[in-house]
Design a protein around this nucleic acid. Structure first.
Lengths: 214, 214
DNA sequence: ATAAGCATACATACATGAATGTAAATTGCC
DNA sequence: GGCAATTTACATTCATGTATGTATGCTTAT
């Protein structure tokens, strides 16, 4: 039973991605053998090498499959000029956290990325993509914070660069830690209050100093 | 040249830990060959197997060597009953960030733990220790937040559990991201303002709701 | 429309190298 | 001289990548 139709081939590829995500999460990326992934997907290693050059490319595909929808969200929100920039930031962050809270695959993704993966030279392309995504996201958020300053939602002395770094760190930390133990608290329910807390801090006591700013 | 004196043996062990930290950072823990560590330390693999059972034990030793001083800080601060609990939290966090900013070995440690390491079953003891440390830290911080509520520094309706989760996430995120690119901003200089921002948020709009709280 | 031919989507088998753990050998301190 | 500290040598395991096999879907020409 070889040579499937095009649709079946796509299905095989998809099941490989799903299997890889699972096995990566269980064993860690580096310790994962492609034979395990193949077995989980119900094929042999040959199938993997047909669809992907090697483990790195497989991992990259897994990552892109997971981050694609989030990026779409961000891009969508980046289009329009917002009347309420802070609310936009809040909404974006809330959507990201909500998605994480509700989507099992997303949890698996971030678990792998945060705790089951070594970012070494081998995964250079993934690292580069991560960096680019982060930069784009940070840049967009800082834009929104700048707009927030402009329309009086944030104090005029706000260092929006630092505010953005803090915001991003907060998000990363929340996801990083929550994924470790999803039972710890109900993220979907608490995301709003958690975000509002930081945003309130920004409004009342934003970072001002930045001695090394260029 | 074999059979060193006790002091020399200790020095060998120490240099192995240093070498391991470096190589772990460069290649990632899983991809590190013990032969590389040995070479870096100027010995052979045999020396490693004398001092440590295997790579996991070596990694564990590296971790404990790095987290020991931080734990000491926390333990110290946990002793005294503080008159100004929020300031204590601030000071603890500030010390952690400052140490990270100034101590190259600490940067290497967190770089490894956050980005160059897969927490799989193989490293179960390290994971367990991490969990215990985190739990202790969170518990201590929540105590302090409770005291802060008691003495009016935080609103009486504050959900100190969530506040603690947020605080911890913030710290983790700051370290996680800053270590990726220490040139990005001067952490030692910005840590204070960044912390004050979140703490101000806690004071003005702390998380209240927690539907799933037991 | 259909048969030939080519490309596709895998499976199987193999060769290779690499890292590990251990056992034995070596040397020098106490 | 016995043991501590380390080296050297060895056996084994294991995952990888590749090369080859193969059967089927797809396409084109007639």
């Amino acid at each position: 039973m070889v040579k499937k139709t095009r649709e079946e081939a796509r299905a095989t590829r998809e099941s490989l991605l799903v299997a890889a995500l699972q096995v990566f999460r269980e064993r860690g990326v580096a310790h994962t053998r492609l034979s395990d992934v193949a077995e989980r997907a119900g094929v042999t290693r040959g199938a993997i090498y047909w669809h992907f050059k090697d483990k790195a490319e497989l991992f990259q595909a897994v990552c892109e499959r997971g981050t694609l929808p989030v990026e779409a969200l961000l891009a969508e929100a980046s289009q329009s000029v917002q009347r309420d920039p802070l609310a936009t930031v809040r909404q974006l962050a809330l959507m990201a956290l909500t998605r994480l809270a509700q989507h099992a695959d997303t949890q698996a993704m971030f678990d792998v990325i945060f705790h089951k993966c070594e970012f070494t030279e081998e995964l250079a392309p993934v690292v580069a993509k991560n960096d680019a995504d982060r930069a784009a996201c940070l840049s967009r958020v800082q834009q929104l914070f700048n707009q927030a300053v402009a329309c009086g939602q944030l104090p005029p002395t706000t260092d929006t660069f630092l505010a953005t770094q803090g915001m991003h760190a907060y998000m990363v930390g929340l996801m990083h830690e929550w994924v470790l133990n999803p039972q710890n608290y109900d993220l979907a329910a608490c995301a709003g209050p958690l975000l509002d807390c930081y945003l309130a801090g920004l409004a009342t006591r934003p970072p001002l100093c930045r001695p090394d700013a260029g």
